[in-house]
Simulated assay, not measured.
Amino acid sequence: MFCKSMARGSYALLGLMLSGCSSAENEMAGGNLAAVNHTLNAINWFSVNGYRAHGGGGSSCCIILPIKWRPGLMAHIEWEVDPNRFAKIKRKTTGFGFDEEAWAAHKAKFQRHSATVEIPEWSGTDSCGLKVHFLVCNQIKVTTSCWGYGSPNNPIKEPKQMREPAVCPG
């Protein structure tokens, strides 16, 4: 009998200790991870702080973010670009499927990039996940805005289908 009540007391104490360590600044929540491609290239995939998603557009689940924004929140983004998304990979003249050699030559031109950017402030608990905007010259912008791309209230104003400039700013 003593052991059962001692075990219950230990669980209660553990629960109090865990809840005592919790604060609004440390609480985390899941949100959608979305991409908006402003370039003419294909974004094959991307990841943010290790959370991997498919690229180009739409949203994927999930990324874990603090419920309350705090200074210094960073997003480390890695992504793969297909610079010739309209390349035609011919079928084999015999058999089925792609020409593996042609596909390997095309895939060898894929480019991988990475950038670390600050996650902008959101008020209260009004974060709507994280949206990664892929811009020309391998630039990235992120937003937690609940306003969709194209809304006058969305902070990202760059147009879609931007062409790469002849020279990217250094």
Rank of each mutant, 00 (worst) to 15 (best):
Ser19Lys: 12
Ala53His: 03
Thr94Cys: 05
Ala104Gly: 02
Pro120Met: 04
Ile89Asp: 04
Cys61Gln: 12
Ala12Gly: 00
Asn41Phe: 13
Lys68Glu: 12
Lys92Leu: 05
Leu40Gly: 06
Glu158Arg: 03
Asn44Asp: 02
Asp99Gln: 08
Arg163Glu: 05
Lys157Gln: 12
Ala7Cys: 06
Ala24Gly: 02
Asp126Met: 14
Gly56His: 05
Gly15Asp: 10
Trp79Ala: 08
Asp82Trp: 09
Asn32Gly: 04
Leu33Tyr: 08
Cys128Ser: 10
Asn26Tyr: 03
Asn84Asp: 14
Pro83Ala: 08
Ala34Gln: 12
Ile156Gly: 02
Lys90Cys: 02
Gly124Thr: 06
Gly58Phe: 13
Gly30Ser: 12
Ala7Lys: 09
Asp99Leu: 00
Met17Asn: 04
Ala35Gly: 10
Met6Leu: 14
Leu14Asn: 12
Gly56Asp: 10
Ile63Arg: 03
Gly31Met: 08
Cys128Thr: 07
His76Asp: 11
Ser47Asp: 15
Val136Pro: 01
Pro120Phe: 10
Ile77Leu: 09
Ser23Val: 08
Lys107Met: 03
Leu40Ile: 13
Ala29Glu: 14
His113Gln: 08
Ser19Gln: 13
Ser59Met: 08
Glu101Gly: 01
Thr116Ser: 14
Met74Phe: 02
Met17Trp: 15
Ser19Val: 15
Gly170Phe: 03
Met28Ser: 07
Leu73Tyr: 05
Phe98Ile: 09
His133Ser: 08
Tyr149Leu: 05
Trp69Thr: 09
Ala166His: 04
Ser47Glu: 15
Gly30Asn: 12
Glu101Gln: 03
Tyr11Lys: 14
Trp45Tyr: 04
Ala166Met: 08
Thr94Met: 01
Phe98Lys: 12
Phe134Tyr: 07
Thr116Trp: 06
Val48Gln: 08
Gly58Trp: 15
Ala166Ile: 01
Met74Asp: 06
His133Pro: 00
Gly72Met: 14
Val117Ala: 06
Ala35Tyr: 11
Arg163Gln: 10
Leu40Asp: 07
Ala75Glu: 11
Ser19Met: 15
Glu100Val: 13
Lys68Ala: 14
Lys90Gly: 01
Lys4Asp: 08
